[in-house]
Amino acid sequence: MAYQIIQSQCSVCGACEFECPNGAIKMKGDTYIIDAAKCTECEDQGSPQCASVCPVDGTCVPA
């Protein structure tokens, strides 16, 4: 189980990378991607941090 970033929507602001507690989000090429192996869906955070901070709704979504 992991989150993913819908690249066509992403504004490449990097807020998700800044917040991800597991270092699962990295810049790759021109956009950010989530490493599914590292993503825990923020089980212990209350809410997925990337989706909560992302300014473009529907961009950080469950894969």
Partner: peptide, 14 residues
């Protein structure tokens, strides 16, 4: 520093 921690109604983050 393009990331932001608030959303404003006058802003489009794209």
């Amino acid at each position: 520093a393009p990331a932001c921690n608030i959303q404003c109604n006058y802003c489009n983050r794209k």
